[in-house]
């Protein structure tokens, strides 16, 4: 998908219940040459329009009327796994962001990020890259630490990070750019990117395994 989309206009959907913000983000994206195929103010609207407009990237606020951003992320990606979700949130609600990432979002940006940061993030997410803030890296790192704590879980399926992945994630959490990490560890930029992506993939995979197991335990697989 990477070569083509870079040339063509990237199809984006903006979901935000705040009209001022929705308009501002939409305008910024359009001016930068993105194709804003849909906007939505609620979770229900977002899911209906997502199916009709088939955007490549969903720029999503987590605090929206039912279903919330986490639910929209899960539903949308179940419908079209090739789509990408970039969480753009004003809320500092840590748990929500982590849940959205577990549900499959591959990028997170706080709303105070600049226009350029937003445009860059949309481009990168569309390419299939992950967009990490130090805050998100800290959350993901904390989640792996929590899962690895023998007191908290005895799960044999618990995901584990390799030493290299931990090292990279930790550096990102300390505010280093991928470029700086690559220089420090004498790796290519691409390798750093891959390590970061793997950490998210492991977390999302674990989440799916958990959900499936939960569904089986609840007997939801019977019908």
């Amino acid at each position: 998908m990477s070569a083509d989309t870079a040339e063509q206009a990237i199809r984006v959907m903006v979901v935000d219940d705040h009209p001022m913000w929705r308009d501002a983000v939409e305008r910024d994206l359009q001016q930068a040459g993105f194709d804003v195929v849909a906007v939505a103010a609620t979770g229900t609207e977002a899911l209906a329009r997502f199916k009709a407009a088939r955007p490549q990237v969903v720029v999503l606020d987590l605090q929206i009327p039912e279903p919330d951003g986490v639910g929209v992320t899960r539903e949308a990606l179940a419908h079209d796994p090739s789509a990408r979700v970039l969480v753009l949130s004003a809320s500092g609600e840590q748990a929500d962001v982590l849940e959205a990432v577990k549900a499959g979002a591959t990028g997170y940006l706080v709303k105070s990020a600049s226009r350029e940061e937003l445009l860059d993030a949309v481009r990168r997410v569309a390419r299939g890259d992950t967009v990490f803030t130090p805050g998100l890296a800290g959350l993901v790192l904390g989640e792996f630490r929590r899962l690895a704590d023998p007191a908290a879980s005895t799960d044999p399926m618990q995901p584990q990070l390799t030493e290299r992945e931990t090292e990279v994630l930790k550096m990102v959490a300390k505010g280093m750019s991928y470029k700086q990490v690559a220089e420090r560890l004498v790796l290519s930029h691409r390798t750093v990117q891959n390590h970061v992506q793997n950490t998210l993939r492991k977390l999302q995979m674990h989440n799916r395994v958990e959900l499936t197991r939960w569904a089986i335990e609840q007997g939801l697989d019977e019908d």
């Binding site: 001022m20 913000w21 501002a24 004003a90 809320s91 709303k111 105070s112 600049s114």
Partner: peptide, 13 residues
Amino acid sequence: DGVLQVLSLVQRR
């Protein structure tokens, strides 16, 4: 949430 949104928007613009 509304206040945060507006403050971020003012900051950005």
